[in-house]
Every structure is written in C-alpha cells, then in structure tokens.
Design a protein around this nucleic acid. Structure first.
Length: 595
DNA sequence: ATAGGGTTAG
C-alpha cells in the first residue's frame, strides 16, 4: 500500500510532457438533398465522377449513396465503389456490405481484386471463413489472383474462428508453395493470432525465428508478444524481449510501454513501473488515455481509489480527457471498496461529461451493489438499464444472477435465467456455473443436475469448476458417496481435479469419518502433482474435529505443520474448545508446542 | 491512388 502511495505521488509530481490538445470534430450537417452528395469534377482526364464520402454518417446514407452511384452515367469507377464498401465495413455492418456487393454484381458494377478482398474480409469478420475461402473461386473467375492481402485476411479469419492449426497450416503453405510473399501485416496477423489463442510461447519462438529471416517483424509484432507475455505473468521475459527489440533497432512505442507498464503494475512492481514512466517521458513518449487508464486500473484493483482519482486529476491537467473506460474502471474501484454511492454518482455524472454510459458501466455498478449485499439496488439498476433502452449482455445476466442466488433468491434467479434465452442471448459456461452453484448452495441438487444435462445439450461443456460445484453441493447435502463417484468419473470426461476439488472431497470424507479414504486420496492427490495447500489441511481438520476425531485431527495438524502451513483461526478455536471439553487443562500448551 | 494490422475496463 505504502509503495503504491509513493508511486502515486511520484506520478503526480512528475511533469509529463505536455500533450497536444484534443480536437473537436465539428459536426458536419448532413444535407439530405441527393445532389450535395455528389461532386462531379470536370477534369479533362478523369471523365468518371468522383464521389464525396464525407457526408456518410450511417449505413442508410451509405446505401442511399450506393443506389445513386448505380444510376450515374458515366458510371463511377471501381475505386469509388470500393471506397463505399470500405465505409460500410468501418461501421461494422458486414452483412450490409455483402448485400451491397451482391447488388453490385447484379447491376454489373465494376469489381476488382480490392473489392473481392473486402468481401473475403466481411465473411471472415462474420465468422464464416469458409465463405471467405469460397470467394477464391470468384477471384479466378474474374481473372484475378488472390494476393498477400487475401491470404492474410483468410489467416485472420481462421484465427477468429479458433481454427489455430488451420491458420498455421495456411501460413506454412504460403511459404512453401510461395503463394505470396508475406509482409509485416501477415506476420503480425500470425503472431497476434497465436498470442490471442494462448500460444504465447509459439508466437515468441516464431518472432525470434523471423528475426533471422528476411521477413522482419515490425514493432506491432513485438508489442503483441510482449503484451501476451505480461498477461501470462512472464513480465521478465517481456522485459528481455523489450531489450532485444531495441537491440535490433526497433523503437518501442506507446503500446509497447503501456503493455509493460500494465505487467509491472499487475504484479506489484511499482518501483519499476515508476522508472518506466520516467523513461517514457525521457524518450518523449507522451502518455495517452490508455496508459493513464492502466494506472487508474492498477490503483483501483489495490483499493486505492484516492490515488486513482489523483491519476485522473493529472490526466485532465495534461488535457487528456477521461473516457468511458476511465469512468468504468473508477466505478469498479469504488464498488470494490464498498463506496457504491460514489460509484453511482460517478455513473450519473457521465452524460454531463459528454460520455454515454455503456452496458459495461451498468454491469460494473450492478456488480458493485451485488457484492456489497445491496441486491435491491442492483435489481433497481438492472431494470433502469432496460428503461434507458440499453441492451443487456451475458455479463449483465451473470452478475445479476450471482447477486440473486447469493441473497438466497433462488426462484428469482431461475426466472431471470429463463429471461436470458428470451433476450436471445446465449448463456455461457459462467452463466451455468453461477446457476448450478446458486441451486446447490440453496440445496436444490436435483435441479442443478437437470441443468447440467441442459447445458450439455446446448453445447456448453461443463468444466472442472462445474463439477466442483456439484460435488460440493452433494457433500454439503451429505451425499458423499455419490459425490465420490462423480469425482472418480472425472478422468473419463478428460478433466483433471484441481486443489480446490480435492480439498472439497477430502474435507467431506474427513467430516464423514472416512479417515482412511481421505488419507488415500491425499496421497493420490500429491501423486497427481497437485499439492495440498493450507486450505486443504484446515478443511480436513475442521471436518475431523466436527466428528470429534481428536487424535486423527492431531495427525493432520502435525502433517500440516511439517508442510509449513499453520492452522487458521477456526481450527485453533475448535481445537481449544474440544481439548477443554475433554478436561485436558494442560493440553493447549502441548498443542502449541506441536505446532 | 480503392483491400488485410495492435494497447485499456466488466
């Protein structure tokens, strides 16, 4: 905590390089009269009309303009049509783009390889990479060859569809069959795809391999790997890679430094974080809103909201305006320290600052209310979201469900779960885990199991947590035998029990008095490379003490101490109670000796 | 003189 404060003060005192002022885009009034959209340039060597795209503000404008372009004579050239398609892609309306493209073909509008690449990209972004590959046929039909852009887009599409192996295969094919010469975008796409898929080390190796070839990775590729390393807790490797890229003459940029900064902050390396900021300032790299948000987030996660506020103060002094992410992060921070009123006020102040609260903003506060035992307030806010015309997402439901079940409101939770599907949202693994846990903790084991089947039918694969929830529920309901059987069946399902799960089952066996079985499982646990932790021992000892198995408890206690763990407060007080019950006046000192 | 690219929050 103290280190963080020192760091905060350093940040405050430090004079950041003054940042350029933000620009305000003047709202161009859209003139609906069709002729304002078109600018015929009467230049002698360009008879085809040029189109002014600056008036396009939404999809309707774009489609309207497209229809006009089709009617124009002479027809606008392919470049103009491509610009139009690109403008729709930028609005993320990929299906609309494809519809417009279809209309182009039907009306005989000009098409070239750029157009086809846009089409491939749209299919990929709609998660239909297969349709993207099908466009290759059109390339050949039209007499064009797919180029590096086409293949890079397809590789990206494969990664987007979680087809990592196929993406790697296609990339290798490019190289071996010399389908095209990969460029820095191709390399970034592959590196980034691997990182996002969790294959950080593969990406790292590939990056190092490229360094030795003529395909040079650019700063973005390094950034991608550095960011991934930091997220995977390998901050030192990230720092080493930073040194290597500088060595290769590639200058780190704001993104590089931001990733490293987040890595350092996330793992409590405040001193190094502070030094990094100094270095950034020395290198004349001015911090942007994202960098500041990383700092705000770091302080908030530590519960240091005052320091987070100070960072916001500094960024405003530097003319960097807090954005929606800044506000959402602060709402989270206030919620974490129980200041839900402040969180609420902050959320309400956003429109006045020209910021529209997003569903994420509301989710944060709903979560804040739930975690602070204010389910009524959470529910009120949940309803408010709907009134505001914002759409819920799965996270909203997950948060609210968790809140309701925590408050023991099972029936309401179940009702809300039905609403998820009604809203055409797809419940995810977390949704089901929350639901199952809520049911189990409120002793509705049978209902929980029926939802286990439902989730499987819906194609959501239960994970180790799901089974942990069910096993825990069964144990709590004193159905240890069934729990044990379910536990034994996990390897067949390809799931390996973790420490928590072993702890639940071994603890329950202790409480059931099945000490030998518990001991066997403890051995099995260690054999499988899963080391018992202090919770494991404490739970076991508690179970044994509940059964009044004092000498067995003592054996576990001895083992626990040998492993370097100490009993928690509950265990100590239970132990003392039972020793006193037995009238062993002097035993409390004896037991402390043992530990 | 039109296509494919990366950093923050739940």
């Amino acid at each position: 905590m103290k280190k963080m404060r020192v760091f905060a003060m350093a940040v405050i005192r430090r004079g950041f390089a003054a940042n350029k002022s933000y620009t305000v885009t003047s709202p161009l009034s859209f003139l609906s009269s069709s002729f304002h959209n078109l600018t015929h340039k009467n230049m002698p060597f360009s008879p085809n009309p040029r189109i002014d795209f600056s008036y396009i503000h939404d999809v309707d404008d774009a489609v309207f303009l497209f229809r006009q372009m089709l009617r124009m004579r002479p027809q606008p050239c392919v470049v103009e049509f491509n610009k139009l398609l690109t403008s729709i892609v930028k609005m993320k309306k990929y299906s609309v783009t494809l519809n417009v493209f279809d209309e182009m073909r039907q009306s005989g509008a000009p098409v070239n390889e750029y157009t086809l690449n846009i089409v491939v990209n749209c299919h990929c972004l709609l998660n239909r990479v297969d349709f993207g590959f099908a466009v290759l046929g059109s390339f050949f039909k039209c007499g064009y060859k797919p180029d590096v852009t086409t293949f890079t887009t397809l590789i990206k599409g494969l990664f987007l569809g979680d087809k990592v192996v196929e993406a790697e295969k296609l990339f290798k094919k490019l190289l071996t069959l010399k389908l095209c010469e990969p460029d820095e975008v191709t390399i970034l796409t592959v590196i980034n795809g691997l990182c996002k898929a969790g294959h950080t080390l593969t990406a790292y190796d590939l990056l190092r391999l490229f360094e030795k070839t003529s395909f040079k990775p650019d700063v973005s590729s390094y950034n991608s790997v550095i960011d991934s390393l930091c997220k995977d807790r390998m901050v030192d490797d990230a720092l080493q890679l930073l040194a290597k890229m500088i060595d290769k003459g590639i200058s780190p940029d704001i993104v590089t430094y931001s990733s490293i900064l987040r890595g350092l902050c996330n793992f409590g390396r405040w001193k190094e974080a502070k030094d990094l900021i100094t270095k950034m300032v020395d290198h004349k790299i001015s911090l942007n809103v994202i960098t500041f948000n990383i700092l705000v987030d770091a302080f908030c996660k530590e519960g240091l909201v005052k320091e987070a506020e100070d960072v916001v103060e500094i960024m405003m002094q530097r003319n960097i305006l807090p954005d929606v992410v800044t506000y959402n992060t602060l709402v989270d921070g206030y919620s974490l320290v129980g200041q839900t009123d402040k969180a609420r006020k902050l959320l309400d102040s956003m429109p006045g600052k020209g910021l529209k609260p997003s569903i994420i903003s509301y989710n944060s506060l709903i979560n804040g209310y739930c975690k602070n035992g204010k389910v009524e307030e959470a529910w009120g806010l949940f309803l408010e979201v709907r009134r505001k015309g914002l759409e819920y997402d799965v996270v909203t439901y997950n948060t609210m469900l968790q809140g309701l079940f925590c408050a023991g409101r099972c029936a309401d939770g179940l009702k809300l779960f039905k609403d998820v599907q009604y809203q055409q949202l797809i419940p995810n693994l977390l949704t089901y885990n929350i639901l199952l846990n809520g049911l189990c903790m409120n002793k509705h084991i049978d209902e929980a199991f029926s939802f286990l089947h439902i989730m499987e039918e819906q194609g959501v694969n239960p994970d180790i947590t799901t089974y942990g929830i069910l096993i825990h529920g069964l144990c709590k309901d004193e159905k240890v035998e069934i729990a044990r059987n379910l536990f034994n069946s996990l390897p067949c399902k390809g799931l390996r029990p973790n420490v928590q799960l072993y702890t639940i089952i071994i603890g329950s066996l202790c409480q059931e008095g099945q000490v030998e079985e518990a001991k066997c499982l403890l051995v099995e646990m260690e054999k499988s490379g899963c080391a018992p932790n202090s919770v494991t021992y404490n739970v076991c000892i508690q179970g044994l003490l509940k059964r009044k198995l004092l000498s067995e408890a003592k054996a576990f206690l001895d083992e626990m101490c040998r492993q370097g763990f100490s009993p928690d407060a509950t265990v100590v007080s239970m132990l003392l109670d039972q020793l006193q019950d037995k009238g062993w006046r002097y035993c409390s000192s004896e037991s402390t000796d043992n530990c």
